[in-house]
Structures are given as C-alpha cells and as structure tokens.
C-alpha cells in the first residue's frame, strides 16, 4: 500500500511545485496548501500504514491488544496540520496585504525590495502575453475582477 501512496505523494508534490513556480502569488499559495497535504501524507506513509487498527488502548486493557497503527507519526502530523493551516492563513493574509499595497499579485512585478537592474530583462520564457481565457481588463493593467 505504501508504494501506491508514495506515487500519489509524488503527484501531489509535482502539482504543488508547478503551482509554486507560477507568477501568480495566489497560485503559489494554492501550491503551498497542496504541498503541506503532501508532506503530511509523506510522513504518514513513511511511518507505515495499517488498516482498521487505530492507536487506542481498549478501555479495560493496559496495553493495546494485537496490531495497532503507528501512533508517533500521527502525533507529528496532527500538529503539522494545524501549523500548516496557521502558515497558510498567515501567508494568505500577507499576500492580501501585499496586493493592497502594490495592486498586483504578479510576483515579477513585486520588485520594491529588489528593484530591477537598469539593463535587466525579465526572465526568459515568459512573454507576458494575455491568454484568451480572461480578457476583460485593459491590456497591461491589472484586471480588477472578483473571484470567478
């Protein structure tokens, strides 16, 4: 079973990486959300998975009878879930504030801390052209639309 989970973890990580490499701050955050799920699943898998045997000691026993799932990774993941959520929420708020301050979520345009060199061209491969998907704002200006 762990092998299958490993493949799924790989797919989640690949999707998260693709999102994180995006220019759009919000998509980067979506990537982080997926990545934190993938990381939790990775720890869970690395501690081996067991079906139908929760790490609970029956009420009248001192030690668990028979097989039980590995409790240690579960304890680690439980806090990781909550912390991951705290991180994501904070990052979202931070991005929102960044958007308010700079009126853009394009990370290429967020160059206040590191202004571009006078002769610097933007990274290659991005032509910055508008895709036909959404073409409501004027060309070259940030579009102000609510969530679709």
């Amino acid at each position: 079973m762990e092998n299958v989970l490993a493949i799924v973890v790989g797919i989640l990580v690949a999707c998260a990486t693709f999102l994180i490499l995006s220019r759009d701050l919000i998509r980067i955050l979506l990537g982080i959300a997926i990545l934190s799920n993938a990381a939790n699943l990775l720890i869970f898998t690395a501690g081996r998975v067991t079906r139908d045997a929760p790490p609970l000691v029956p009420g009248d026993l001192e030690v668990p009878a028979g097989a039980y799932a590995n409790p240690l990774p579960q304890a680690l993941i439980l806090t990781a879930i909550v912390i991951g959520f705290g991180l994501l929420a904070f990052a979202l708020v931070l991005s929102y504030r960044a958007y308010v301050a700079m009126r853009t979520v394009d990370v290429d345009a967020m160059r206040e801390a590191e202004p571009p060199y006078p002769d610097q061209s933007p990274p290659t491969g991005e032509d910055g052209r508008q895709t036909p998907l959404r073409r409501r704002g004027a060309a070259g200006t940030p579009t102000r639309e609510a969530a679709q």
């Binding site: 909550v82 959520f85 705290g86 929420a89 904070f90 979202l92 708020v93 929102y96 308010v100």
Partner: peptide, 18 residues
C-alpha cells in the same frame, strides 16, 4: 489557543478593507 488564533485570522480577514 486554536480557537483564539483561528477566529482572529478569520474575523480579521472578514473585516479587512482594501
């Protein structure tokens, strides 16, 4: 702690103005 922190985040975001 969990109540306080999460409620803070949610309420602040709800009230935030552009």
């Amino acid at each position: 702690v969990v109540i306080g922190a999460i409620v803070t985040i949610a309420l602040e975001m709800e009230e935030a103005e552009d």
